[in-house]
């Protein structure tokens, strides 16, 4: 049987990229680093108690009293396990990855909703991005961006972006045809149609995409810690490598609490508007 050296081709391509776009990757790296550090600085400068109260208040407001109380208690528990700083590092990474996924994903989703050709091309690409074992992204990420939080963020964006693209496109395509016709019949331009009708009506679906993206980002926490992203992933890794079951459990519990808090809040954002 003939062996097709696909792996070699990928290596050649990656080499070519690093040779020719070193400056480009350097720029991205710096920008990402600055963003992550910025988030981290903000999250860790705000005092623990205040941060817990802010989260609890937001959760209470969008998702009701129960979720608000749960959020307050959960975050307080994280603090009492002395994992607050690690949690805020992780939250900074997740925030950065999610923000980038939205900035790229929403316009891409809008474009995809308008073009059947692009839709046909992107669908398999998105499936690929999401089903490829996430570890695989670590290699090129490290290759281009060294170790640290930046390659972690990049791998996370690639893995976590598909839902936002897909659901933005789906949400826009689901806007009833008559409503689009109505808007056009009153003389909307295409941007009026987009901003006054399509995006608002697609918003619950787009927010569902945001929710999935955040959860997928959190699922990358441990994986990206393997390339030095730090945060809660690091705590879990330490638990594994040093056989410290208690530490591993606490780190894992903190990830779960953060995930539940972010999930409940974003989920209810979507439902409020529906």
């Amino acid at each position: 049987m003939v062996r097709i050296p696909l792996g070699d081709y990928v290596e050649i391509f990656i080499d070519w990229l690093t040779d020719n776009f070193a400056g480009f990757f350097e720029g991205i790296k710096n920008a990402l680093e600055a963003t992550i550090n910025g988030f981290e600085w903000v999250f860790s400068t705000i005092p623990f108690i205040l941060m817990v109260l802010i989260f609890a208040a937001i959760a209470w407001k969008v998702a009701g009293r129960q979720t608000g109380i749960f959020t307050g208690l959960g975050l307080w528990l994280i603090g009492s396990m002395e994992l607050w700083n690690a949690t805020m590092q992780t939250f900074a990474l997740v925030s950065t990855a999610t923000a980038i996924a939205l900035i790229i994903g929403i316009p891409l989703g809008i474009w995809m909703s308008r073009s059947n050709t692009l839709d046909k091309i992107l669908r398999p690409v998105l499936d690929f991005m999401q089903t490829m074992p996430a570890f695989v992204y670590l290699i090129p990420a490290v290759y281009f961006f060294d170790l640290g939080p930046v390659p972690g963020a990049v791998a996370t964006v690639i893995f976590a972006m598909p839902p936002v693209v897909r659901l933005t496109s789906l949400g826009i395509r689901q806007v009833p045809k008559e409503v689009i016709e109505a808007s056009r019949s009153f003389g909307s331009t295409s941007s009026q149609l987009l901003y006054k009708v399509q995006i608002p009506l697609a918003m619950p679906t787009i927010l569902a995409g945001l929710n999935q993206t955040i959860l997928l980002s959190l699922s990358m926490v441990v994986i990206s810690a393997m390339i030095g992203s730090g945060g809660l992933g690091d705590v879990v890794l330490k638990g594994i490598t040093q056989m410290r079951i208690g530490l591993g459990f606490e780190g894992g519990l903190a990830v779960v609490i953060l995930a539940m808090v972010l999930d409940r809040i974003t989920q209810n954002l979507g439902q409020k508007r529906a």
Binding site: V179, A182, F186, K196, P200
Partner: peptide, 11 residues
Amino acid sequence: MVFQNFALLPH
């Protein structure tokens, strides 16, 4: 124009 299924903006 007025439409069969009203075509109002639900939001």
